[in-house]
Nucleic acid binder design. Structure first.
Lengths: 343, 343
DNA sequence: TTGAAAGCGGTACCAC
DNA sequence: GTGGTACCGCTTTCAA
């Protein structure tokens, strides 16, 4: 053991240190560490003993660099604290872990600029692939992604430009199931409180609502109010629509947040309105009456996206594909026809 | 441009490629890329032009290796989809991003074995530091952490062995505030539905409950039921405790999940019990009556842990410190004294 | 079965 | 100002 190796060992032993101690070459240490065949058992044993004694741990950074792969994928979303995204994150991480990969998660906070910066940083780190819930449809980082050849999968919303693998939710089907459910329970005058039309998903759901309403032959022009909403604005609009000769008897919301705003508004109004919310939420069962919802499955979407990404990493060269994940109507009661006396 | 560089450029240009094209040394390219001073403006401009033309992007893996730092920290929790952890995750990621670091998140799924494997993999990757919500108190990966010298911060629960930086929540204060609130509203017979005593936090809260009950001079032996719970088991216990000569009039829960089980049980029982839940939840406002809770601030805890970690990365060598984060009682109404006629 | 040497793509150090 | 070169710690290649 030289003075040098002695010193280095104290900090972080390398394969060279192990090799010196075990009187073998670095290559042999490498073989042992990576369980490569072709090492005599006793040699391997000796090397393993030294590894153990010195507390050697392979420096994966060096390995990645030489191999040109990082065994890392990344997930870029708007806000990791949002349940929709955190469920996606958990699913993607799981798929990564199963395949011995690690996951870098990053928030873009809804800003295309930040999203681009984040994605470029990830490319510089040579992550093997990226899953992105894009901030908008502009594909802000398209050029960088293109040049880097880094496989990317988009989720929840499509982006313009070069077609890429994309996992969407069936917004049309989700809204249709909501409308049909309400109609089946006798509703004819249904309103939609959608999200800000700046969001692609919000526009999709609005279109689906209008189309379904027409295809079912419901009377009158569709009543649609797009966000952003507050409980107050919702209350106002609701009052308007329920005090006509053709009062709205049921409401569909465009997402989670709006469902909550609506529940608050309904509580104040004390009006017997039926409701189907978009997005499931934890306490839907505990509200009175329990809230019927269109359930998107973020975990399934995340899993699907990760699987698509790993297929690319394994060499799948087929054309970019878009997958639309089904939604599920969870009936809990709030969609039933309700009389004033119910409350 | 040689044939070699021609080929390489098509894949991924390196500093050597840029240097050759710009007729400067690699070192000069490095200087330009890193905005180091001491490069003539026109040289820098020429280099930048080539960088642009070739689409060069620095390989951060190589840089990290040379510098011995990865500009990466990691977060290990039980389940990324759990709101408590995902809020921590969002906060930690934010602190990392502000400091130009990236965050690797990993789930240990509550298994100490998996946790150890995950942490060792992170150490092998030479992450600069790790934040861990440990699966148990065993500090399963302590030896590896010790040897690797990787800074680590524990959250929510302490671990045995070598003292390390730890961020805890004030379980005692949280429970005390809940009990005091109920007592202030006239309750004298209060019960606790705690979580599985296998969890350190659950035991802490139980102890706090018993201690507070005694210090306030409440009558009788403390009524405590530790988990795991189901709505059915909760209902059974509640029935027992409310049908004595000294009926329980208020309940404190040990966490989020139990609060929900309790709400379901209460709905079935239709008994006028007051309630203070541990952990805030999104729709606490919408339940009838709105649920008063002890709010832990996972975002603040995550932020604090990340800040402590970065202090270490910046060279803070002071002794390991434990920080206890305060909780906040969010009064919403369910803690008030309720008569049978209220429902 | 084993090892020597050349890289992977940058940065650090020191000449010029 | 600029460049040469060793080197981070491992894998790859090829020879012995």
């Amino acid at each position: 053991m030289t003075a040098l190796s002695d010193h280095r060992t104290a900090i972080r032993p390398t394969m060279a240190d192990v090799a010196a101690e075990a009187h073998v070459s670095v290559k042999t240490v490498s073989r042992v560490v990576n369980h490569e065949p072709g090492v005599r058992p006793d040699t391997a044993e000796r090397v393993r003993a030294v590894i153990e004694r010195l507390g050697f741990r392979r420096h994966d950074g060096a390995r990645m660099m030489r191999q040109g792969r990082t065994f890392t994928i990344a997930l870029v979303v708007e806000d990791l604290a949002n349940p929709f995204y955190s469920q996606i994150g958990a699913a993607v991480e799981r798929e990564a872990r199963i395949r011995q990969h690690q996951l870098i998660t990053a928030s873009a906070e809804g800003s295309p600029t930040r999203e681009r910066a984040v994605i470029e940083a990830l490319i510089n780190r040579r992550v093997d692939g990226i899953v992105v819930v894009p901030a908008d449809e502009s594909a802000s980082s398209d050029a960088a992604v293109e040049a880097s050849q880094t496989p990317i999968v988009y989720m929840d919303r499509p982006v313009r430009g070069t077609p890429r693998d994309t996992v969407l939710s069936d917004n049309h089907g989700g809204i249709r199931s909501a409308v049909e459910h309400l109609v089946a329970h006798g509703h004819r005058s249904i309103a939609l409180f959608g999200d800000d039309p700046a969001f692609w998903t919000a526009r999709q759901r609005r279109e689906a609502f209008v189309a379904t309403q027409q295809s079912l032959g419901l009377p009158g022009p569709p009543r649609v109010s797009m966000g952003p909403h507050s409980p107050a604005s919702v209350r106002e609009t609701l009052t308007l629509w329920t005090e006509t000769s053709d009062p709205t008897t049921a409401v569909i919301t465009g997402n989670n947040r709006i469902t909550i705003a609506l529940l608050l508004a309904l509580r104040d109004l004390r009006r017997p309105l039926s409701l189907v919310g978009y997005d499931d939420f934890e306490l839907a069962d505990l509200v009175d009456p329990p809230v019927t919802v269109v359930h998107q499955d973020p975990a399934a979407m995340g899993q699907k996206a990760a699987q698509q990404l790993f297929a690319r990493l394994l060499g799948d060269e087929s054309p970019a594909q878009t997958v639309v994940m089904p939604t599920r109507l969870v009936v809990r009661g709030s969609g039933l026809r309700r009389s004033t006396t119910t409350r």
